[in-house]
Design a protein around this nucleic acid. Structure first.
Length: 578
RNA sequence: GGGCCGGUAGCUCAGUCCGGCAGAGCGUCUGACUCUUAAUCAGACGGUCGCGCGUUCAAAUCGCGUCCGGCCCGCCA
């Protein structure tokens, strides 16, 4: 793992190859004593990693895993593929990225646990574009009739994919692609059907006594009749729980299709008695999870705090004492809240990746997941500007432009995995400013305003301008969605406003001045003159201008803004004509 | 009831593993720039590190207890 990582770490040299603009940002001018300090203190005791993924990678490496290192995540395909599910993918992604940088071959897989039965109707679904829709917008009856069946045996409510499960998995995969995360989607059902689990299932059923004994430590319902295999009923298609006998040689089980209790509800069995192969059913979750570790050779798996005290301890135990394998390196991540509340699809408090990407660049979203997984965080949509500001600062820290040792150390490790490409001369408009630029759809005017504020100059490459402007559309979408203080909009039509006679006269004078042809700075100065000449408060005069152009009492430095607009339009508006 | 995780400035969070002056950004306030979008510059304010006890020369950090929030001990993420 030596060579490649050494090259990667010394980013200072290789940053320049892409755009011919040597990246000296990280070593930049303000002589940084921290560089010297780093030399001196790195000798003795091993410094703590600034990025959690490095810690995890250390632990994985210490076990001497064989390449490819396998990193897994997984969810049951119920309801909406929301941002919370992305913990599973993104946490694994950063560890995978670190290991790859260290020279390992890494396979990141994500299981869709799609042989699980649909237990209750989801309140919300997401269509193929990631838009959230209610149950009423799809054929809810068709779903209801399929309660108890594996997700892969249920039709796609949107009638597009081959099953409910396939629809859901496609959404997750599409979101992973949007974030440029290379993850291999695996269908649990397919793995059963292909016989991938045959051996483990046989092994568990052969040692059913041990299996019962181990699991009974964790689940009181495990009794002498408990058989850790749930066949799919050949008659009604539902997952059943009552296995009456096992034939290890034939790799089949006999079962009775009995009722299944789910919370307060009962999903009725059909009473059918039949025979199922090991491929026509599934292991219960507590066994299935360790079985996945075995058949996929999983080395690392992040999981939510819900599993930390339930499935993980039993899974670890089952892996060692029933399957005889070493469980993967675990990592518990805290759940984040959305707007201060728990993520809940039934309460409608969810957001999807594609929704977020309408508001943020992918790298900002990735940055969110690069933060310490142990901390409970809130993703506050109304304060996305804060998150973006934090990201921008994080980015500047990578290039050595922030006087914050801890942040810089974190950024040096995490930043390259957050962006698709490290480029020194990116332009980042502050998010709220970007929202303000959204007041107009005129691309040139946006650029001009950014130029006026010094974010863009003649040396700014076209690609950087293009990328910077992408934030404008997103920030604009945010301002509109939140309808907040940055939701400015140049009014296309004349707003419904009335003015006193003296203000009206002043506006007419200003119109004449603009019509005569003056630049923005001159118009700005003239506004003061005009207001004085008509003996009106300067503030009031500006306000009348803002009302005319934005239908709001506040706005940009008006003269210079008007100077950028079409003169005819400005003159007509000042005269309240159109 | 038993267990796990979180709680640090108004907000978002570093710092906690391995004890050493309570930190950053944003916001707020004041001042400056012909008073006007994001600002910029200068300065100020801002803290019972959830709370208590203990260990220690020294505790946000370690131990015990406790409060609040979330989660697990059915199924499932």
């Amino acid at each position: 793992m030596g060579g490649e990582s050494d090259v990667e770490v010394s980013t200072d040299e290789n940053g320049g190859d892409s755009e011919g603009e040597p990246n000296n940002g990280r070593e930049s001018d303000n002589g940084r004593e921290s560089d010297n300090g780093r030399e001196s203190n790195s000798g003795n005791d091993e410094p703590r990693h600034a990025f959690w993924a490095d810690e995890v990678a250390d632990e994985i490496e210490s076990r001497g895993p064989e390449d490819p290192i396998v990193i897994k995540g997984g969810v049951s395909p119920s309801g909406v593929a929301h941002l919370g599910n992305f913990n599973e993918i993104m946490r694994g992604y950063f560890v995978a990225a670190v290991l790859r940088e260290r020279g390992h071959e890494v396979r990141q897989v994500f299981t869709s646990d799609d042989r699980d039965p649909l237990r209750k109707l989801p309140r919300k679904l997401a269509d193929v574009d990631g838009n959230i829709v209610g149950l009423g917008d799809v054929d809810a009856g068709a779903l209801g009739r399929n309660l108890g069946k594996p997700y892969t045996d249920i039709p796609d409510p949107f009638g597009e994919s081959e099953s409910y499960a396939a629809h859901f998995a496609a959404l997750l995969k599409a979101d992973a692609d949007r974030l440029d995360v290379p993850v291999e989607m695996l269908s649990n059902t397919e793995m059963y059907e292909e016989g991938t689990f045959d051996e483990v299932v046989g092994h568990v059923l052969e040692r059913v006594d041990v299996a019962r004994e181990v699991l009974s430590e964790y689940q009181s319902k495990v009794d002498a009749d408990y058989v850790p295999f749930n066949p799919v009923c050949e008659n009604c298609g539902k997952i059943t729980e009552t296995v009456t006998s096992v034939d290890l040689d034939a790799e089949t089980v006999e079962y009775v299709c009995t009722d299944m209790t789910v919370g307060d509800n009962t999903i009725e069995g059909c009473g059918h008695e039949g025979t199922a192969t090991f491929r026509d059913g599934k292991l219960p979750w507590r066994f299935e999870w360790p079985a996945q570790w075995q058949v996929l050779g999983v080395d690392f798996e992040p999981f939510g705090k819900d599993h930390a005290e339930g499935s993980w301890p039993s899974g670890e135990d089952i892996a060692r004492n029933v399957l005889g394998i070493e469980p993967p390196v675990p990592m518990v991540y805290e759940w984040f809240t959305l707007n201060g509340e728990a993520l809940s699809s039934s309460a409608g408090n969810i957001v999807t990746v594609s929704e977020m990407l309408e508001l943020l660049e992918p790298e900002v979203l990735k940055y969110f997941f690069a933060l310490n997984p142990r901390k409970a965080r809130d993703l506050d949509i109304s304060r996305l500007d804060q998150l973006v500001d934090d990201f921008d600062r994080f980015e500047r820290a990578y290039f050595g432009d922030v006087d914050d040792e801890a942040l810089t150390a974190f950024a040096e490790r995490a930043y390259p995995f957050v962006v698709s490409e490290v480029r020194a001369d990116r332009v980042r408009l502050p998010y709220t400013f970007a929202a303000v630029l959204g007041m107009t759809d005129d691309r040139d005017l946006r650029i001009e305003m950014a130029r006026n504020e010094g974010y863009v100059d003649d040396d700014t490459p076209e690609w950087a301008i293009e990328e910077a402007l992408e934030r404008v559309d997103r920030a604009r979408a945010w301002a509109v969605r939140e309808d907040n203080a940055y939701n400015y909009r140049l009014q296309e039509g004349l707003p419904d406003v009335e003015f006193d006679d003296d203000v009206a006269a002043a506006l007419d004078d200003l119109a004449a001045y603009v019509e005569a042809g003056h630049d923005g700075e001159e118009i700005q100065g003239e506004m003061y003159e005009t207001a004085r000449a008509h003996d009106i408060e300067i503030g009031d005069f500006f306000e009348s201008g803002y009302l005319l152009f934005f239908d709001q009492p506040q706005g940009p430095r008006l003269g210079e803004f008007l100077g950028e607009l079409d003169t005819e339009f400005v003159v007509a508006r000042l005269r309240r004509e159109s």
